[in-house]
């Protein structure tokens, strides 16, 4: 193709008045509508997935509550108020998950007690103290901490932490609530740090500067001004960290000892506990499908699902609040 020819062609094309025929117009409109609806359908898959998860977990959990021998109300009362979890008993199986829920709370709360202060301080460091270069180094570090698979943490808990606890602290068993909480706190920290840092950074520069101008030190500025201003985002961070800890399976299954009990002096973390996730993971592989025990595990899953769903809505609410412009 010669240059002169192409130039003249282009000139001809551009001099043509830009008018679409009706067919062109229709087809392009139709096409863009088609594309849009196709994309919408694809996007709707996520919604469908959430619905499907709910539907299928509920469908498998329903027979547990609707079993003919016991009335649903009795079942429900036993489920949430009894501490006795003996689903395999031949004559009188018992399905009380109070101790299991308590176990979940024990490890979650303890891990948060460690993870929230540390994570918050680390977030302050990253958002306000660290130089750009330090942050460039710290960020991947925290990402790696988040990326390490939970089962690897679990192996660490069983093979390294548990013998250490047993030998050096003198616990009767190394796999206990404390072990699981320690590891969980490490796992929840990256989430807490990244969300809290976002929240702290979202607080405007003017607010900090105003505080400094009044002669406040950095500690005072952060503790009295910035952190209170970022409270909704920090709450969201705590909730997201909590979700991570509650939903974590492999670590608690491997490290918590799996004893269905509420520690008897309530503060005694050296005792073994069992969480909801560990119960499902440990028992579902061995029960025959369609038995009451099988459905009861789905009921535990449903409790877990509803709990995390509520937490999620809550965290979303707080994040929305955080994103609302304050300036």
């Amino acid at each position: 193709m010669t240059t002169a020819g192409s130039q003249s062609d282009a000139a001809v094309q551009f001099t043509r008045p830009l008018r679409l025929t009706f067919r062109d117009d229709l087809s392009s409109t139709l096409l863009s509508w088609l594309v849009k609806s196709f994309l919408f359908v694809v996007t709707f898959c996520s919604v469908a997935a959430v619905l499907l998860i709910f539907v299928f977990v509920i469908r498998q959990a329903a027979p547990f509550f609707a079993e003919s021998r016991v009335s649903p109300l009795e079942r429900l009362t036993e489920f949430f108020t009894s501490r006795r979890w003996f689903p395999e008993h031949q004559a009188h199986p018992e399905y009380g998950i109070l101790a299991i829920i308590a176990g979940s709370f024990y490890v979650t709360i303890t891990s948060l007690l460690i993870a929230v202060p540390t994570g918050l301080l680390a977030a302050v460091f990253l958002s306000d103290i660290a130089s750009f270069r330090t942050r460039q180094i710290c960020k991947p570090l925290i990402e790696i901490l988040a990326a390490i698979p939970s089962v690897a943490y679990g192996v660490f808990a069983v093979m390294v932490v548990a013998p250490w606890l047993q030998k050096n602290i003198g616990f009767p068993t190394g796999t206990n609530a404390l072990n699981a909480s320690l590891i969980l706190s490490v796992m929840a920290m990256p989430t807490i740090i990244s969300v809290a840092e976002d929240a702290l950074s979202a607080v405007g520069r003017e607010i900090r500067e105003a505080s400094y101008a009044l002669g406040a030190t950095r500690a005072e500025t952060m503790l009295r001004i910035v952190i209170p201003a970022a409270h909704s985002g920090i709450l969201a961070a705590v909730i997201l960290g909590m979700m991570r800890a509650v939903g974590e399976t492999m670590v608690v299954w491997m490290a918590s000892g799996n004893a269905t009990q509420i520690p008897s002096p309530w503060w005694d973390l050296s005792q073994s506990v069992r969480t909801m996730t560990a119960t499902i993971a440990g028992e579902l592989g061995e029960v025959p499908q369609g038995t009451t025990h099988f459905h009861s595990l789905f009921a535990i899953g449903l409790v877990l699902l509803i709990f995390t769903f509520c937490l999620n809505l809550l965290s979303e609410h707080f994040i929305m609040q955080m994103k609302k412009p304050k300036r």
Binding site: S46, L52, F56, Q60, G247, T249, T308, F309, N312, E316
Partner: peptide, 20 residues
């Protein structure tokens, strides 16, 4: 919201769902 929920569903519940 659904995408966030999906991200927040505990992994063991995915296991339950995968089975069911």
């Amino acid at each position: 919201t659904c995408i966030n929920t999906l991200a927040g569903v505990p992994s063991i519940v995915y296991g339950l769902f995968g089975l069911a």
